[in-house]
Design a protein around this nucleic acid. Structure first.
Lengths: 151, 151
DNA sequence: ACAAAATATATCGCTTGCGATTTAATCTTC
DNA sequence: GAAGATTAAATCGCAAGCGATATATTTTGT
Protein backbone atom coordinates (compact mmCIF):
# COMPACT_ATOMS: atom_id res chain seq x y z
CA UNK A 1 0.00 0.00 0.00
CA UNK A 2 1.37 3.39 -1.00
CA UNK A 3 2.09 5.61 1.95
CA UNK A 4 0.85 9.05 0.98
CA UNK A 5 1.74 11.62 3.60
CA UNK A 6 -1.38 13.64 2.81
CA UNK A 7 -3.55 10.85 4.16
CA UNK A 8 -1.65 10.50 7.42
CA UNK A 9 -3.63 11.51 10.45
CA UNK A 10 -0.88 13.74 11.81
CA UNK A 11 -0.92 15.74 8.59
CA UNK A 12 -4.63 16.40 8.62
CA UNK A 13 -5.48 20.04 9.08
CA UNK A 14 -9.10 19.49 9.95
CA UNK A 15 -8.74 16.73 12.50
CA UNK A 16 -7.47 19.15 15.19
CA UNK A 17 -10.59 21.28 14.71
CA UNK A 18 -12.78 18.23 15.19
CA UNK A 19 -10.80 17.04 18.22
CA UNK A 20 -10.55 20.49 19.81
CA UNK A 21 -14.27 21.01 19.45
CA UNK A 22 -14.89 17.91 21.50
CA UNK A 23 -12.26 18.91 24.06
CA UNK A 24 -13.90 22.30 24.50
CA UNK A 25 -17.30 20.74 25.00
CA UNK A 26 -15.78 18.56 27.71
CA UNK A 27 -14.27 21.60 29.42
CA UNK A 28 -17.71 23.21 29.56
CA UNK A 29 -19.59 20.08 30.61
CA UNK A 30 -18.91 20.06 34.37
CA UNK A 31 -19.69 23.79 34.60
CA UNK A 32 -22.86 23.47 32.57
CA UNK A 33 -24.04 20.41 34.47
CA UNK A 34 -24.55 22.67 37.46
CA UNK A 35 -26.93 24.78 35.39
CA UNK A 36 -28.67 21.81 33.82
CA UNK A 37 -27.53 22.76 30.32
CA UNK A 38 -25.65 21.07 27.52
CA UNK A 39 -23.17 23.08 25.46
CA UNK A 40 -25.53 23.70 22.50
CA UNK A 41 -28.26 24.62 24.98
CA UNK A 42 -25.85 27.04 26.65
CA UNK A 43 -25.09 28.69 23.31
CA UNK A 44 -28.81 29.04 22.72
CA UNK A 45 -29.27 30.65 26.13
CA UNK A 46 -26.36 33.00 25.39
CA UNK A 47 -28.07 34.46 22.36
CA UNK A 48 -31.37 34.68 24.20
CA UNK A 49 -29.76 36.47 27.16
CA UNK A 50 -28.27 38.89 24.69
CA UNK A 51 -31.27 39.51 22.45
CA UNK A 52 -34.25 38.47 24.63
CA UNK A 53 -36.74 37.61 21.91
CA UNK A 54 -35.79 35.66 18.86
CA UNK A 55 -37.42 33.36 16.36
CA UNK A 56 -36.15 29.85 15.73
CA UNK A 57 -34.58 31.13 12.53
CA UNK A 58 -32.88 34.03 14.33
CA UNK A 59 -31.26 31.63 16.76
CA UNK A 60 -30.37 29.35 13.91
CA UNK A 61 -28.58 32.02 11.93
CA UNK A 62 -26.55 33.05 14.96
CA UNK A 63 -25.58 29.48 15.84
CA UNK A 64 -25.55 28.09 12.29
CA UNK A 65 -28.17 25.53 13.13
CA UNK A 66 -31.48 24.71 11.52
CA UNK A 67 -34.89 23.82 12.81
CA UNK A 68 -34.22 20.10 12.54
CA UNK A 69 -31.64 20.56 15.30
CA UNK A 70 -33.15 23.50 17.13
CA UNK A 71 -36.77 22.45 17.45
CA UNK A 72 -36.03 19.44 19.67
CA UNK A 73 -33.36 21.38 21.59
CA UNK A 74 -35.75 24.27 22.23
CA UNK A 75 -38.45 21.87 23.36
CA UNK A 76 -36.00 20.53 25.93
CA UNK A 77 -35.21 24.04 27.15
CA UNK A 78 -38.95 24.68 27.31
CA UNK A 79 -39.60 21.53 29.32
CA UNK A 80 -36.85 22.63 31.71
CA UNK A 81 -38.74 25.90 32.10
CA UNK A 82 -36.00 28.18 30.77
CA UNK A 83 -37.84 29.45 27.69
CA UNK A 84 -41.29 29.66 26.21
CA UNK A 85 -42.30 29.01 22.60
CA UNK A 86 -45.20 30.83 21.00
CA UNK A 87 -46.46 31.09 17.44
CA UNK A 88 -46.27 34.64 16.19
CA UNK A 89 -49.74 36.12 15.73
CA UNK A 90 -48.61 38.25 12.82
CA UNK A 91 -47.06 35.29 10.99
CA UNK A 92 -48.26 31.89 12.04
CA UNK A 93 -45.25 30.18 10.48
CA UNK A 94 -42.90 31.78 12.98
CA UNK A 95 -42.24 30.52 16.49
CA UNK A 96 -41.06 33.21 18.90
CA UNK A 97 -38.74 32.14 21.67
CA UNK A 98 -38.55 34.11 24.87
CA UNK A 99 -36.95 33.68 28.26
CA UNK A 100 -38.97 32.75 31.31
CA UNK A 101 -38.18 34.20 34.72
CA UNK A 102 -36.20 31.04 35.42
CA UNK A 103 -34.31 31.46 32.16
CA UNK A 104 -33.49 35.07 32.98
CA UNK A 105 -32.29 34.14 36.44
CA UNK A 106 -30.00 31.47 35.03
CA UNK A 107 -27.84 34.21 33.54
CA UNK A 108 -26.50 35.16 36.96
CA UNK A 109 -25.46 31.57 37.62
CA UNK A 110 -23.80 31.43 34.20
CA UNK A 111 -21.90 34.68 34.61
CA UNK A 112 -18.83 33.06 36.12
CA UNK A 113 -18.47 30.48 33.34
CA UNK A 114 -16.43 32.55 30.84
CA UNK A 115 -13.91 33.29 33.58
CA UNK A 116 -13.62 29.63 34.59
CA UNK A 117 -13.10 28.68 31.02
CA UNK A 118 -10.40 31.24 30.35
CA UNK A 119 -8.72 29.90 33.44
CA UNK A 120 -8.75 26.38 32.01
CA UNK A 121 -7.53 27.61 28.66
CA UNK A 122 -4.75 29.66 30.21
CA UNK A 123 -3.34 26.36 31.51
CA UNK A 124 -2.76 25.28 27.94
CA UNK A 125 -0.25 28.11 27.52
CA UNK A 126 -2.30 29.79 24.81
CA UNK A 127 -1.95 33.55 24.94
CA UNK A 128 -4.81 35.93 24.39
CA UNK A 129 -3.19 37.02 21.16
CA UNK A 130 -2.92 33.46 19.94
CA UNK A 131 -6.56 32.84 20.80
CA UNK A 132 -7.58 35.96 18.87
CA UNK A 133 -5.53 34.88 15.88
CA UNK A 134 -7.09 31.42 15.94
CA UNK A 135 -10.58 32.85 16.21
CA UNK A 136 -9.88 35.02 13.19
CA UNK A 137 -8.69 32.09 11.12
CA UNK A 138 -11.62 29.93 12.19
CA UNK A 139 -14.02 32.67 11.14
CA UNK A 140 -12.55 32.64 7.65
CA UNK A 141 -13.15 28.91 7.56
CA UNK A 142 -16.70 29.37 8.79
CA UNK A 143 -17.33 31.87 6.01
CA UNK A 144 -16.83 29.02 3.53
CA UNK A 145 -20.37 27.87 4.30
CA UNK A 146 -21.78 30.64 2.15
CA UNK A 147 -19.81 29.62 -0.90
CA UNK A 148 -19.22 27.42 -3.87
CA UNK A 149 -17.16 24.24 -4.08
CA UNK A 150 -14.09 22.91 -5.75
CA UNK A 151 -14.81 20.24 -8.32
CA UNK B 1 -30.97 42.20 32.62
CA UNK B 2 -27.31 43.08 32.94
CA UNK B 3 -25.49 42.98 29.64
CA UNK B 4 -22.17 41.31 30.34
CA UNK B 5 -19.96 41.35 27.28
CA UNK B 6 -18.37 38.06 28.28
CA UNK B 7 -21.63 36.26 27.69
CA UNK B 8 -22.20 37.71 24.24
CA UNK B 9 -22.02 35.18 21.47
CA UNK B 10 -19.65 37.30 19.38
CA UNK B 11 -17.17 37.33 22.27
CA UNK B 12 -17.12 33.58 22.74
CA UNK B 13 -13.79 32.04 21.93
CA UNK B 14 -15.02 28.49 21.73
CA UNK B 15 -18.07 28.98 19.56
CA UNK B 16 -15.94 29.41 16.40
CA UNK B 17 -14.29 26.06 17.08
CA UNK B 18 -17.67 24.41 17.39
CA UNK B 19 -19.01 26.12 14.28
CA UNK B 20 -15.87 25.54 12.21
CA UNK B 21 -15.90 21.87 13.10
CA UNK B 22 -19.34 21.53 11.61
CA UNK B 23 -18.38 23.57 8.54
CA UNK B 24 -15.41 21.30 7.93
CA UNK B 25 -17.55 18.20 8.19
CA UNK B 26 -19.87 19.71 5.61
CA UNK B 27 -16.95 20.39 3.28
CA UNK B 28 -15.95 16.75 3.48
CA UNK B 29 -19.45 15.33 3.17
CA UNK B 30 -19.98 15.49 -0.61
CA UNK B 31 -16.51 14.04 -1.22
CA UNK B 32 -16.99 11.26 1.31
CA UNK B 33 -20.47 10.40 0.07
CA UNK B 34 -18.82 9.11 -3.08
CA UNK B 35 -16.80 6.68 -0.96
CA UNK B 36 -19.72 5.74 1.26
CA UNK B 37 -18.06 7.15 4.37
CA UNK B 38 -18.94 9.68 7.05
CA UNK B 39 -16.26 12.01 8.38
CA UNK B 40 -15.53 9.99 11.56
CA UNK B 41 -15.48 6.84 9.46
CA UNK B 42 -13.01 8.52 7.09
CA UNK B 43 -10.75 9.43 10.02
CA UNK B 44 -10.89 5.81 11.14
CA UNK B 45 -9.95 4.63 7.67
CA UNK B 46 -7.08 7.15 7.60
CA UNK B 47 -5.43 5.63 10.65
CA UNK B 48 -6.03 2.13 9.34
CA UNK B 49 -4.53 2.97 5.95
CA UNK B 50 -1.53 4.35 7.78
CA UNK B 51 -1.02 1.61 10.37
CA UNK B 52 -2.86 -1.41 8.85
CA UNK B 53 -3.64 -3.31 12.04
CA UNK B 54 -4.90 -1.63 15.15
CA UNK B 55 -6.97 -2.49 18.16
CA UNK B 56 -10.10 -0.54 19.06
CA UNK B 57 -8.08 1.20 21.77
CA UNK B 58 -5.30 2.10 19.33
CA UNK B 59 -7.77 3.78 17.02
CA UNK B 60 -9.39 5.45 19.99
CA UNK B 61 -6.19 6.98 21.24
CA UNK B 62 -5.37 8.36 17.82
CA UNK B 63 -8.83 9.82 17.29
CA UNK B 64 -9.60 10.58 20.94
CA UNK B 65 -12.65 8.36 20.90
CA UNK B 66 -13.68 5.51 23.13
CA UNK B 67 -15.25 2.15 22.52
CA UNK B 68 -18.73 3.48 23.20
CA UNK B 69 -18.36 5.55 20.04
CA UNK B 70 -16.03 3.31 18.08
CA UNK B 71 -17.67 -0.06 18.48
CA UNK B 72 -20.85 0.89 16.61
CA UNK B 73 -18.88 2.89 14.04
CA UNK B 74 -16.54 -0.03 13.39
CA UNK B 75 -19.48 -2.38 13.05
CA UNK B 76 -20.83 -0.11 10.32
CA UNK B 77 -17.48 -0.13 8.53
CA UNK B 78 -17.47 -3.90 8.87
CA UNK B 79 -20.96 -4.27 7.46
CA UNK B 80 -19.86 -2.10 4.53
CA UNK B 81 -17.04 -4.56 3.98
CA UNK B 82 -14.17 -2.13 4.55
CA UNK B 83 -12.71 -3.72 7.67
CA UNK B 84 -12.80 -6.92 9.66
CA UNK B 85 -12.99 -7.30 13.42
CA UNK B 86 -11.40 -10.22 15.20
CA UNK B 87 -10.75 -11.02 18.84
CA UNK B 88 -7.05 -11.29 19.55
CA UNK B 89 -6.03 -14.85 20.31
CA UNK B 90 -3.31 -13.75 22.69
CA UNK B 91 -5.66 -11.49 24.65
CA UNK B 92 -9.33 -12.20 24.27
CA UNK B 93 -10.29 -8.78 25.58
CA UNK B 94 -8.80 -7.08 22.56
CA UNK B 95 -10.51 -6.69 19.20
CA UNK B 96 -8.11 -6.34 16.28
CA UNK B 97 -9.25 -4.26 13.34
CA UNK B 98 -7.81 -4.87 9.92
CA UNK B 99 -8.54 -3.69 6.41
CA UNK B 100 -10.26 -5.89 3.87
CA UNK B 101 -9.29 -5.85 0.22
CA UNK B 102 -12.17 -3.46 -0.35
CA UNK B 103 -10.94 -1.25 2.48
CA UNK B 104 -7.42 -1.19 1.05
CA UNK B 105 -8.71 -0.32 -2.39
CA UNK B 106 -10.72 2.56 -1.02
CA UNK B 107 -7.47 4.37 -0.28
CA UNK B 108 -6.90 5.03 -3.97
CA UNK B 109 -10.35 6.60 -4.29
CA UNK B 110 -9.66 8.72 -1.20
CA UNK B 111 -6.28 9.92 -2.35
CA UNK B 112 -7.60 13.01 -4.09
CA UNK B 113 -9.62 14.20 -1.08
CA UNK B 114 -6.87 16.15 0.73
CA UNK B 115 -6.20 18.11 -2.44
CA UNK B 116 -9.88 18.90 -2.97
CA UNK B 117 -10.15 20.07 0.58
CA UNK B 118 -7.12 22.33 0.43
CA UNK B 119 -8.67 23.78 -2.69
CA UNK B 120 -11.85 24.59 -0.80
CA UNK B 121 -9.92 26.01 2.10
CA UNK B 122 -7.73 28.14 -0.12
CA UNK B 123 -10.93 29.93 -1.19
CA UNK B 124 -11.31 31.17 2.36
CA UNK B 125 -8.11 33.16 1.98
CA UNK B 126 -6.35 31.25 4.73
CA UNK B 127 -2.65 30.92 4.03
CA UNK B 128 -0.67 27.78 4.71
CA UNK B 129 1.16 29.61 7.47
CA UNK B 130 -2.08 30.67 9.10
CA UNK B 131 -3.37 27.12 8.91
CA UNK B 132 -0.18 25.82 10.54
CA UNK B 133 -0.43 28.40 13.28
CA UNK B 134 -4.05 27.50 13.94
CA UNK B 135 -3.23 23.80 14.05
CA UNK B 136 -0.53 24.50 16.57
CA UNK B 137 -2.88 26.48 18.83
CA UNK B 138 -5.59 23.85 18.55
CA UNK B 139 -3.14 21.18 19.59
CA UNK B 140 -2.36 23.07 22.76
CA UNK B 141 -6.08 23.18 23.46
CA UNK B 142 -6.39 19.47 22.77
CA UNK B 143 -3.60 18.79 25.25
CA UNK B 144 -5.88 20.13 27.97
CA UNK B 145 -7.69 16.79 27.96
CA UNK B 146 -4.88 15.23 29.89
CA UNK B 147 -5.01 17.75 32.70
CA UNK B 148 -6.45 19.14 35.89
CA UNK B 149 -9.27 21.71 36.17
CA UNK B 150 -9.89 25.19 37.45
CA UNK B 151 -12.17 25.36 40.44
C1' DA C 1 -58.15 36.24 -6.77
C1' DC C 2 -55.73 32.09 -7.42
C1' DA C 3 -52.00 29.00 -8.55
C1' DA C 4 -47.21 28.55 -7.76
C1' DA C 5 -43.18 29.69 -5.26
C1' DA C 6 -41.10 30.75 -1.10
C1' DT C 7 -40.68 30.59 3.85
C1' DA C 8 -40.77 28.76 8.79
C1' DT C 9 -41.00 25.12 11.51
C1' DA C 10 -41.49 20.35 12.40
C1' DT C 11 -40.77 15.41 11.65
C1' DC C 12 -38.19 11.23 10.43
C1' DG C 13 -34.27 8.27 10.25
C1' DC C 14 -29.74 7.79 10.80
C1' DT C 15 -24.84 8.50 12.73
C1' DT C 16 -22.08 10.57 16.33
C1' DG C 17 -20.59 11.41 20.90
C1' DC C 18 -20.51 10.42 25.54
C1' DG C 19 -21.58 9.33 30.64
C1' DA C 20 -22.57 5.34 33.03
C1' DT C 21 -22.62 0.67 33.48
C1' DT C 22 -21.76 -4.27 32.13
C1' DT C 23 -19.22 -8.26 30.73
C1' DA C 24 -15.34 -10.81 30.08
C1' DA C 25 -10.48 -11.49 30.25
C1' DT C 26 -6.02 -10.60 32.24
C1' DC C 27 -2.94 -9.07 35.82
C1' DT C 28 -1.52 -8.41 40.70
C1' DT C 29 -0.78 -9.56 45.09
C1' DC C 30 -0.81 -12.16 48.78
C1' DG D 1 -3.75 -20.17 42.84
C1' DA D 2 -7.78 -17.59 44.41
C1' DA D 3 -9.48 -12.67 45.41
C1' DG D 4 -9.48 -8.33 43.97
C1' DA D 5 -7.99 -4.81 40.82
C1' DT D 6 -7.36 -3.49 36.19
C1' DT D 7 -8.21 -3.48 31.40
C1' DA D 8 -10.78 -3.87 26.72
C1' DA D 9 -14.96 -3.88 24.50
C1' DA D 10 -19.59 -3.62 24.42
C1' DT D 11 -24.13 -1.95 25.77
C1' DC D 12 -27.58 1.47 27.11
C1' DG D 13 -29.84 5.82 27.04
C1' DC D 14 -29.89 10.29 25.68
C1' DA D 15 -28.72 14.75 23.14
C1' DA D 16 -26.87 16.61 18.91
C1' DG D 17 -26.50 17.26 14.06
C1' DC D 18 -28.16 16.84 9.64
C1' DG D 19 -30.20 15.26 4.94
C1' DA D 20 -34.58 14.67 3.30
C1' DT D 21 -39.18 15.45 3.51
C1' DA D 22 -43.69 17.18 5.31
C1' DT D 23 -46.90 20.71 6.81
C1' DA D 24 -48.66 25.03 7.23
C1' DT D 25 -48.54 29.79 6.18
C1' DT D 26 -47.39 33.76 3.52
C1' DT D 27 -45.81 35.99 -0.66
C1' DT D 28 -45.52 36.52 -5.52
C1' DG D 29 -46.89 36.72 -10.19
C1' DT D 30 -50.24 37.04 -13.41
Amino acid sequence: MKNSAELEIENQYCFPIYAASRVVTKLYTPLLNELGLTYPQYLTMLVLWQYQNLTVNDIGSKLMLESNTLTPLLKRLESQGFISRKRSSSDERVVEISLTEKGINLKKKASYIPEKLSCSISHSGISQEEMDQMKHTLQKLIALTKEHHCK
